Simulated scan of single mutants.
Amino acid sequence: MKPVTVITGGSRGIGAATARRLATAGHHVAFSYRRDRTAAAAVLADIEAAGVRGVAVPADTRHPGQVAALFDAAADLGPLTGLVNNAGVTSPIGPFVDLDPADLRDVVDINLVGYVLCAQQAARRMGDGAAIVNVSSAAATLGSPGEYVHYAAVKAATDTLTTGLAKELAPRGIRVNAVAPGIIRTDIHALSGQPDRPDRAAARIPLGRPGEPDEVAGAIAWLLGPDATYTTGTVLRVAGGL
């Protein structure tokens, strides 16, 4: 029986790279997206071209009903074995004192509340041998001063969620880990108002370059796979040395 994995925010960036990577590894994949149907259709076509089944579900992970609908759609593919909590947003980069409360609420609701709601659904449906991977950020320990301190704080909460949930679900044989990407070349930087940020930041990254989504997808695939069966409660940093 093939594994069945849910990925939130699977139409772009790290989520899309992970969907393609897992499909190639033999996973059936259900993924959510917010608005871009064209991008979602392209990812779905690649999943199916890999010889597995896929489903793309429009869903806003802030809403429990839409989260439940995503997991219901995944159930049509088979018993749930994996969740990649990936859907996330930043906000316009700038000083902490200029933070708009509406942007703060979006970052908290999508990056933390959404993760909790999805992890709840997964925990209710998963059995022994299943795994959850939360996409955190190196910002959780770096703090992102002058950029988005609030986002860093929420990602630190993601790490705590990972630790606590790993301990709570371990007796049921469910593993919970996180990856903490550094500066990755995705369109999240354009959405924050600085599309050239990865290239500008290269000089301060010890490896001298930003990362690529596929490099994070590889770490996620490992944490979901058979070589990581004794790994839980871990935050795997994929940040080029940051």
Rank of each mutant, 00 (worst) to 15 (best):
D72M: 08
N134L: 10
A75P: 02
F96S: 12
A203R: 12
A69Y: 00
A201G: 09
A39C: 09
G10P: 01
A201M: 15
A25Y: 03
A202E: 11
P101I: 03
G211Y: 12
D199T: 14
C118L: 04
A221C: 11
A122T: 05
G94M: 10
D72F: 01
L169T: 01
G129C: 09
L112G: 02
N86Y: 08
V176I: 09
D60W: 11
P64T: 00
S91C: 14
E168N: 08
H63Y: 14
A87I: 02
D46W: 00
I14G: 03
G54T: 05
I7M: 00
R175P: 05
V43D: 02
A138P: 06
D227E: 15
D199E: 15
A40H: 04
I47K: 02
Q194S: 08
V235C: 03
G94E: 10
T160N: 13
I220P: 01
A139S: 15
G9I: 02
D128N: 10
R53M: 13
T18V: 09
G9Q: 02
A87C: 04
H150T: 12
I188E: 08
T234F: 09
Y148R: 12
R34Y: 07
A59H: 04
A45F: 04
R105Y: 12
A228H: 11
L22P: 00
V6P: 06
W222I: 00
V235E: 10
H63V: 12
V89C: 10
G51D: 06
Q66H: 05
